[in-house]
Design a protein around this nucleic acid. Structure first.
Length: 538
DNA sequence: GTAGGATGTCATGCC
DNA sequence: ATGGCATGACATCCT
């Protein structure tokens, strides 16, 4: 066993036996000690090689070799990056298009559904990253002594060593980059620890920026730069569905907002800052209820209806509301508050509709639920008109007050002709609506009653039919009995000579008093004659 | 896209 | 004359 070749053969044999599922009687770990050591050595060597390759690649990109002078020149991208500050880059459309937000397939589809955009390649994303002067500083630190340094320390060192103006300008950028790295790990690898190897961090960062299918968060600055309605709409959606773990995978902000404590891991930030950031993001992105309801205009609402997956019919309803009350409304009433109220009404109705009717759970829709949902949608039409015309009475009162009280009420207010007409129409429609409902109910009840009556008549008909059949059977039995009795009587009758009577020549006839007479046939007395239809059993 | 049910609304007649 | 009711017919929405 001391011979290395013999030991190698022994391990190989164990491995072969193990692969062939041969029970050796002991656990595999006992045999795997040497195997694991070999694997770890191989893995470390591969990691070392990979790191060297990455460093070499980074250096090649940072410094371009001038073929004429043989000197290393700064890459064009880094030159460009000095001309364009990072904050401006963040605000630019190009960066917005390349941001990880847009590389999230879901967000990208929602944000830029109109445009056909090619996701940036890894090279582009890499050069984008390397074009940041702050990141170059990071790389210097990484190369020098940051190989085993935690990310927080690297950030701190870079921040301290930066020149003052650049520090000020680049604070957000640094925070953005480090936040991105940190967030990337929080989201993409929530269960794993932060890699201690800076190259691995950088590598993950590169993958984060370049992988179009990687739904990782972007620097918060990117989001702040995107103050378009898309963000105001899409992100609340993420917030609304924050409990949905599936969607959370595609919406990193859900993770960040629902788990703010994870942001505490971000370098250079304490909990209060993170919380402040969270609140700030919440408000800026339209999470705040007061902001989203109070200041929303109808166009935004319509847009929100679009992106919040409201159906086409509801959008039409919203649009009809818009047109309806725009037609009805005096200009002074066309205020945000009214619109917000209307929007709230409709969205709450929509919400109620969605909550009440769950077609996924009930393939056959509940008629009551359906009718209630439709009612909610339809009932509000006159209410909209009443609100738009500022009627002093509620629709319910307009419809349900007695005539005297109603007339008294409308006379007590000073109503315009339009208001008067509308209030009369609302009452008429309301009354007619109730009448139509009762009429339909009555019609339905009549229909049901008629069906019940039909069923009863059918049953009665069956009973009568059965009784008829029973009576016919009994009649036949009685006829048979009478015939037999008649024949028996004839058979026993004898004349004075002891001869029997011929049934063809004579017949029996009984009177009402029970007396039986023997009469010769041909007698024209048909009363009480049971022999007309009696068969003769001769 | 279509069928069918539910509902709202209008027109009309009657009380 | 007026208001309310009943009902047929049509439109619209929703499943």
């Amino acid at each position: 066993m001391d011979d290395p070749s013999a030991q190698f053969q022994h391990e190989d044999l164990i491995d072969i036996l193990w692969r062939q599922d041969v029970d050796l009687g002991v656990k595999r770990e006992i045999f795997d000690g040497c195997l694991r050591q070999r694997e770890e050595i191989t893995r470390a060597r591969e990691r070392e090689l990979k790191r060297e390759r990455e460093l070499e690649r980074i250096m090649q990109r940072l410094q371009k070799l001038d073929k004429e002078t043989g000197e290393f020149l700064p890459s064009p991208s880094s030159v460009n990056s000095q001309a364009v500050p990072f904050s401006e880059t963040l605000h630019s459309t190009e960066f917005t298009q390349r941001s990880p937000v847009t590389q999230n397939p879901l967000l990208s589809a929602l944000l830029f559904s109109q445009k056909s955009q090619k996701p940036p390649s890894q090279e582009q994303a890499f050069s984008e990253l390397l074009s940041l002067p702050d990141l170059q500083y990071y790389l210097d630190v990484l190369e020098s002594d940051g190989s085993s340094m935690p990310l927080e320390d690297i950030t701190e060192i870079c921040h301290q060593n930066l020149p003052e103006p650049q520090k000020e300008n680049s604070t957000d950028a640094l925070c953005g980059v480090t936040q991105t790295i940190s967030d990337s790990f929080e989201v993409a690898q929530p269960l794993s620890c932060m890699p201690s190897d800076p190259i691995e961090i950088l590598e993950t960062c590169i993958k984060t920026f370049s992988d179009p299918g990687n739904p990782t968060p972007s620097p918060s600055n990117t989001i702040y730069s995107c103050s378009t309605p898309e963000n105001q709409v899409i992100l609340p959606k993420c917030h609304i569905n924050s409990s949905d773990s599936t969607l959370s995978e595609f919406c990193p902000y859900t993770i960040n907002t629902s788990k703010p404590e994870q942001l505490n891991h971000a370098p250079g930030r304490d909990a209060s800052q993170t919380h402040l950031k969270f609140e700030e993001r919440h408000i800026l992105l339209g999470f705040d209820d007061s902001a989203s309801v109070g200041s929303v205009d109808l166009e935004t609402s319509l847009y929100a209806a679009d992106t919040l997956s409201i159906s086409q019919s509801d959008k039409d309803e919203l649009e009809s509301i818009h047109s309806d009350y725009t037609d009805l409304l005096p200009l002074s009433l066309h205020s945000d508050a009214v619109e917000a109220t209307l929007y709230e009404t409709v969205t709450s109705a929509q919400h109620q509709t969605q909550n009440e009717s769950s077609p996924k759970n009930s393939p056959q829709a509940n008629p009551l639920t359906t009718s209630r949902a439709a009612g909610v949608r339809r009932v509000c039409r006159d209410e909209r008109r009443a609100q738009a015309m500022s009627l002093p009475l509620s629709v319910h009162d307009i419809v349900n007050l007695p005539v005297e009280a109603f007339n008294e009420a409308i006379n007590s207010y000073k109503l315009s002709n339009a208001q008067h007409t509308l209030i009369r129409d609302i009452r008429r429609r309301g009354k007619n609506k109730m009448a139509a409902q009762s009429c339909r109910k009555r019609k339905l009840d009549n229909f049901i009653d008629l069906e019940d009556e039909i069923e009863g008549l059918k049953r009665e008909k069956e009973q009568i039919k059965e009784e008829n059949e029973r009576n016919a059977r009994e009649l036949q039995e009685k006829k048979e009995k009478l015939r037999k009795l008649y024949n028996e009587v004839f058979r026993r009758l004898r004349d004075e000579h002891g001869n029997s009577y011929n049934p063809r020549e004579y017949k029996l006839q009984h009177s009402t008093d029970g007396t039986v007479y023997l009469l010769p046939r041909g007698t024209d007395n048909k009363t009480n004659t049971p022999t007309e239809d009696l068969p003769f059993a001769l």
